[in-house]
């Protein structure tokens, strides 16, 4: 996987039409590259932002913590994502964005993004589309957390990440990095750590999925996707 801005271009080309001059405009964006250690925050709930970030390598996640201390992970962001793109218009963020593992991000000032969008108005449509797909992922996630079994929820998160990583050349055969801990998975799926652990063990015993040390391997896509009731249409990859 490339660890520069090309990963953003690959992502945007996967969700819509990206003309060469628009790709060039993205390449010309001034970006400030930063390394973020595992667990460190990129953006904190309540911050007022003047820039957004693109994930260049590693993984970020958005999360919120209840006053009683319980944490919900809202979304995982592999390379190519701009997890805080909303702050371009909603400057005061209402979530915390942290590094799931050691990651490299590219910080882009909002004024640079605005200047680019003035020059390349069609990119506004593409970023809008990206934001809508982000919302579509939340709809699917809400349904899963409310209605799906523990096994289906677990299977689904792996099916989704595999599908999203594939379009940015982030998978190697059936193997891909998912640097989340079991605690992260439990907090994302709304289940206890022990339940998440047992669910993963069950999927391994059923020869559908193997997950260890931040590496996932899909052992049987057809059965895993069927268990998850996974239908990738909500990701809107190249369906324009």
């Amino acid at each position: 996987m490339t660890s520069d801005i090309e990963v953003l271009i690959a992502k945007l080309a996967a969700i819509g039409r990206l003309h060469p001059q628009q790709a060039e405009a993205i390449r010309n964006l001034p970006i400030q590259v930063a390394r973020i250690n595992r667990g460190h925050d990129v953006v904190m709930d309540g911050n007022i932002m003047t820039h957004s970030c693109v994930v260049l390598s590693g993984m970020l996640h958005r999360h919120k913590t209840m006053k009683d201390g319980n944490r919900q992970i809202l979304s995982f962001h592999p390379p190519g994502d701009i997890p805080d793109l909303q702050s371009l218009h909603l400057r005061k963020v209402d979530y915390t964005l942290s590094a799931t593992t050691q990651s490299v991000i590219g910080l882009i000032e909002h004024k640079a993004i605005r200047a680019m969008l003035r020059d390349q108005p069609a990119l506004t449509d593409l970023l809008w589309r990206d934001t809508l797909i982000d919302a579509a992922q939340f709809l699917t996630w809400m349904m899963l957390i409310g209605q799906a079994s523990a096994e289906a929820r677990m299977a689904h998160i792996f099916c989704e990440l595999y599908t999203r990583l594939k379009v940015v050349n982030g998978v190697s055969g059936n193997t891909f990095p998912f640097p989340a801990t079991q605690t992260d998975l439990a907090d994302a799926l709304g289940m206890s750590i022990v339940h998440a652990n047992r669910t993963l063990q069950a999927l391994r015993a059923e020869a559908m999925l193997s997950f260890a040390n931040g590496q996932a391997e899909i052992l049987d896509w057809a059965r895993l996707a069927s268990l998850a009731q996974f239908d990738s249409s909500y990701l809107h990859l190249s369906d324009e």
Binding site: M191, V194, N197
Partner: peptide, 22 residues
Amino acid sequence: QGVDLPDIETAKDEATRTLSEI
């Protein structure tokens, strides 16, 4: 496989929550 947890109290809470979820 087991799970690494800070202490016995956390382990008991995890067991309770897991039972209720299952």
